[in-house]
Amino acid sequence: MTAPARILVTGATGAVGSAVLRALDAAGHRAYGVSRRGGPGARQFAWRIGRQEPPRELRGPWTAAVHCAADTRWGLPVERAEEANVAPLRALLSLIGPETHLVHLSSSYVTGLEGSVASDAPDAYRNSYEWSKAAAERLLHTERDSVDIVRFPIVMGARADGRLDRYSGFFWLPASLCSGAVPALVAHEKGLMDMVSTDDVAEHVARLVADGPPAGRRLSVLGRGDRAQRVDEVFDTVLDALNSWRSEHGVPPLDPLPYVTPDQWNRFYLPFAEEYLDRTQLLRVTAFRAYQGYLSVTEPFEVTERVADTTRVLYQSIRGWADAHGTSARRIPRPWSA
């Protein structure tokens, strides 16, 4: 395929979008980025997509568009989740037209609790983020005859050094371990935590763009599948990375936390917590409850693109988080008490 004259990347300052933008530039494409506040460089623009008209520079034909923009907060009301993750897609579809090769970035968790994006019922999903990403995929099936949909699980940093332009989502974990925000790991120790590097996503997107638009709706699922790391392996790697960093910076090591199954936690420990913990501790415990579903996945994703092992990527990414958040990484956990 001849290099596209213009490629638009939404969410271009996010962890994934920034990696996609760099990969497209490296492949020789002329990529333009948009985000809420804009970014560095002459080809990055501010656009609150779905809420504002696009800047003049973004009008005109686009050969390809990669939709990375997303609000990954899980606790939004459904109406706000729709505004955050469905309305922007509608606005993008209006801008690019049907002739543009669209690559839409979704989530491996988009199939929710029923294994499908078909349901419009919020209770078919773990949270409003999953619901909104499923709604976006349904919109594409309605509006587009040709589209690439790319699903991927938890995102770590670059394979070379674990660096991310923005640490969010999963990185509640090292922050919580360092601060003592949770008293136990509510998880299935042998559950699966699938991960990819930003490189994996960006390189796959660049290949799709180079191949040109598909004849119909094409789904890619990136990940390790049945070779994903187990939950206990993930937590061991995170703890090893944090303690390695803390040792180098003269900070005492963190102790491993005990595992509690979600059933044990919700039946026995949570009622105790609600009765005896102080308000701050209880808020932390309540917030942590949202992660239980992701720490209890026992069935692997059926991947179409199996990525290389991510154990080293996870280790490097946690150290990268610590370098970028030194104050948090140096914290000494406060003991829990009733």
Rank of each mutant, 00 (worst) to 15 (best):
V155M: 08
S128V: 08
A158V: 03
P174Q: 12
P300W: 05
P253M: 11
R151H: 01
H204F: 03
L95W: 00
A136V: 11
A12T: 11
A64H: 13
P213K: 13
L242Y: 12
V205W: 05
V201K: 01
M1C: 03
R80C: 00
E53I: 00
E143T: 14
E137N: 09
E114C: 07
S116Y: 08
G162V: 05
L76V: 03
P88N: 13
E143R: 15
D165M: 06
R217G: 02
P4C: 10
T310G: 00
P122Y: 02
V209P: 10
S337C: 10
V238W: 09
L105H: 02
R218P: 01
L185K: 08
V285M: 12
E83T: 10
D145V: 07
P40C: 05
V201C: 04
S18V: 08
T298G: 11
E302A: 14
G250V: 12
T261Y: 10
R43F: 11
A134I: 06
G157V: 10
V9L: 05
L140C: 13
A134T: 04
R217E: 08
D123P: 00
A215K: 14
G162L: 09
H188R: 15
G225N: 11
V238D: 04
V234C: 14
M195E: 04
L164V: 01
S244T: 15
W74C: 11
D263H: 06
V66Q: 11
W74D: 00
E83M: 08
